[in-house]
Amino acid sequence: MKIHVTDEALQYFKEEMEAKEGDTIRFFAKYGGSTDLTQGFSVGVHMETVDRAAVEETVDGIHFVVSDQDDWLFQGQDVEVSVQNEEIVFSQAKQ
């Protein structure tokens, strides 16, 4: 599993969450909702460090992680993090 953060999503995190080099943004399972990846759960976003990352991608010095307790949500798929209608969207990365 890999995380691909689009340029637009990176800019969103910098502006909306004031993320900067050295910060960690965690993607986690949230009950309710759905994504292109799974039904019944959505993806939460929080700025916090993670002790045991299952997946980590660093873009422009910002660490994007999924902890080992939440990696089931992505079902081993490569994930694209993008922006649509001014909201973060998680979808299966295009091959």
Rank of each mutant, 00 (worst) to 15 (best):
G61V: 10
N85H: 12
S42F: 03
M47H: 02
I3Y: 11
D51V: 05
Q92H: 12
S34Q: 13
L73E: 03
E8S: 15
L37Y: 14
V81C: 05
G22Y: 14
A29F: 02
I62L: 02
G44Y: 10
T49K: 12
G61M: 12
Q75C: 03
I3G: 10
D78A: 15
V65R: 06
G33N: 06
V43Q: 06
F74A: 09
G40I: 05
Q84V: 13
A53L: 00
D71I: 13
Q69H: 10
E80Y: 04
G40K: 04
Q92G: 08
V89S: 09
G61C: 11
S34T: 08
K94F: 09
E56C: 09
D78Q: 03
S42W: 02
V66M: 09
A29D: 00
G22D: 14
K30H: 08
G33V: 02
E8G: 11
V89P: 01
A53Y: 06
E21C: 04
D68L: 00
Q69W: 13
G22E: 07
V50F: 12
A19V: 05
V81Y: 04
V66K: 01
S42L: 02
F74W: 08
W72V: 01
Q92A: 15
W72P: 02
L73P: 00
K14C: 07
F41I: 00
D71W: 03
G76C: 10
A53N: 13
K14D: 02
I3Q: 08
G76E: 04
M1D: 12
L73I: 12
G32R: 09
N85I: 05
D71Y: 10
D70G: 05
A93N: 01
V66Y: 03
E8I: 04
L37T: 09
L10P: 00
F64E: 04
Y12Q: 07
R52H: 12
R52G: 03
Q95V: 08
G32S: 10
D78P: 02
A19D: 09
G22V: 12
H4E: 11
E18Q: 14
D51C: 01
R26C: 10
D71S: 11
H46K: 11
V45T: 15
Q77E: 13
E8P: 00
V66C: 04
F41G: 00
K2A: 13
H46P: 00
Y31S: 14
V83N: 01
V45A: 05
F13W: 04
Y31W: 04
D51M: 10
Q92K: 15
Q69G: 01
W72C: 10
K94N: 12
D70A: 06
L73S: 04
Y31I: 10
E21A: 15
T6K: 10
G22L: 08
D70P: 11
V81H: 01
V59Q: 09
D7S: 15
E18A: 15
D60F: 09
R26T: 05
S91C: 04
V66R: 09
G32N: 08
T58P: 03
K14V: 08
A93F: 02
E16G: 01
Q84N: 06
V89H: 08
A93W: 00
G32I: 06
Q39E: 15
F90A: 04
D60C: 06
V55N: 03
V43K: 01
E56Q: 15
E48S: 11
H4P: 00
F28E: 01
V55W: 06
F41W: 14
I25K: 03
K30E: 11
A53C: 08
E80D: 06
E57M: 04
Q77A: 13
G76D: 06
V5M: 13
S42N: 12
G76Q: 13
K2E: 14
